[in-house]
Design a protein around this nucleic acid. Sequence first.
DNA 1: TCTATATAAGACTAAATATATCTTATATAT
DNA 2: ATATATAAGATATATTTAGTCTTATATAGA
Lengths: 154, 154
Amino acid sequence: MRLTRAGEYGIRCVLHLARHGKGALVSRKEIAVRTDVPPHFLAKIAQQLSRAGIIEILQGANGGYRLLTDPSGITLLAVIEAIIGEISLNDCVGRPESCQNSTLCTVHRVWNKANQQLRATLQETNFATLASEEACCLTPFPETGDHKRPNGKK
Amino acid sequence: MRLTRAGEYGIRCVLHLARHGKGALVSRKEIAVRTDVPPHFLAKIAQQLSRAGIIEILQGANGGYRLLTDPSGITLLAVIEAIIGEISLNDCVGRPESCQNSTLCTVHRVWNKANQQLRATLQETNFATLASEEACCLTPFPETGDHKRPNGKK
DNA sequence: TCTATATAAGACTAAATATATCTTATATAT
DNA sequence: ATATATAAGATATATTTAGTCTTATATAGA
Ligand code: SF4
Ligand code: SF4
């Protein structure tokens, strides 16, 4: 009953992009370093985010990733489910046919309720809110300890 | 982000016992057959429920399992966590030290909230309620289609 | 006491999933 | 053209899940 690393990394990636704003291009390498995600693993995660329509991937020299929509329109739920699929706390929630008793089962109803509640909570949170707060979950730049470089140098 | 089979089986086991009431002795075999759980797997799960103080295990001929407390005092949460450990939706919820940013991280706070909410929902449900309702998630007896045998024969 | 029956406890196995990494191909700025 | 960057899929490893097997122990009843 735990989010996968891939899911966690996906959130970090989108959060980092959100801090740069919609449309800003950020290289995979920078995201990988700043969010402490293995670069090749990030590539796979980015592909899933891309298929879900959350980010756009630009190939070639000076390529990278960027958000397709405004951070305020991207929910935590959307990012998580783009990576790990629709949240289902018990097998019978996502696939009622996996248990022949699901239509009658009182436990099943509790799981359905809990599942819906969890998804609602994650849907309430968007990345504009997350990115706007001072505190963040990204690795600071070693030289300054800041999360944003004071100048534009690489 | 899914309950394990062991967790699901633990719930079935306790629900079956709850339908017989506190203190009623039911053989492992009957529980295994009626809830569609592999007998040896059920044995392991029962040991965890026993350590958690939810059931008592009686060895020897005519042995079996029985509830130690009234079903109304046993929550869905208690049974699940006896099997899979404390629910933690993200690694940093259960082990904040696993991510050095957890004290500042805004995402972390969302996870904490969602986790607490989920646990609260599962704690609201007790096995007296689950067992009292007509519908249930146990395999009916083949002969009658009922969930309770009309007489005491094995 | 002996035997049949039941669970205890832990070792063991198989399958699935998670967590990456590696390789080859493709796209783009310069 | 070349250097740089990501795409896409194959491969590898580790962990977890799910279930089985074996040997030991406890109890009821003959
Ligand atoms: S018994 Fe109920 S809770 Fe368990 S898998 Fe079946 S429908 Fe779901
Ligand atoms: S970055 Fe935040 S949400 Fe992610 S693991 Fe660390 S504390 Fe938790």
